[in-house]
Amino acid sequence: MTPPDASHNRWSDLDRPPLNVTALRRGLLRPDTLWTSLEVVESTGSTNTDLAERARAGAAAEGAVLIAEEQTAGRGRLERTWTAPPRSGLFFSVYLEPGDIPPERWGWVPLLAGVAAATGLAKAAGVDMSLKWPNDLLVQVPRTPDPVGPGGGPSGEERKTGGILGEFAGDGIVVGLGINVSLRADELPAPTAGSLALAGAVSTDRETLLRAILRSLEHWYGAWKAADGDAAASGLQAAYAAGCATLDRTVRAELPGGSSLVGDAVAIGGDGRLVLATEDGLRQPVSAGDIVHLRGAAGGLT
Rank of each mutant, 00 (worst) to 15 (best):
V139L: 02
P150W: 00
N135E: 09
P147S: 04
V148R: 07
L121M: 08
L165S: 05
F168G: 14
E157N: 03
A117R: 00
T144F: 15
G172W: 03
K132C: 04
K160C: 05
L112C: 04
D136E: 13
G152S: 03
G172H: 09
V148I: 15
V127C: 10
L112E: 00
V115D: 00
D146F: 11
T161H: 04
A116C: 00
G114C: 07
Q140R: 14
K160N: 06
A125E: 05
V148P: 00
L137D: 08
L165E: 07
G152A: 05
G126F: 11
P145G: 05
G162W: 03
A124R: 11
G166C: 10
G151Y: 05
Q140G: 12
A122C: 12
G166Y: 07
G166H: 04
T144A: 15
A124Y: 12
P150S: 12
G120M: 08
A113K: 03
G166N: 05
P150M: 10
E157I: 08
V139Q: 02
V141P: 05
T119A: 07
V127F: 00
E157H: 03
G170L: 02
R159S: 09
E158Q: 15
L131P: 06
G152F: 00
L165Y: 10
W133V: 01
G172S: 10
M129A: 05
G172A: 10
A117Q: 01
Q140D: 14
R143V: 15
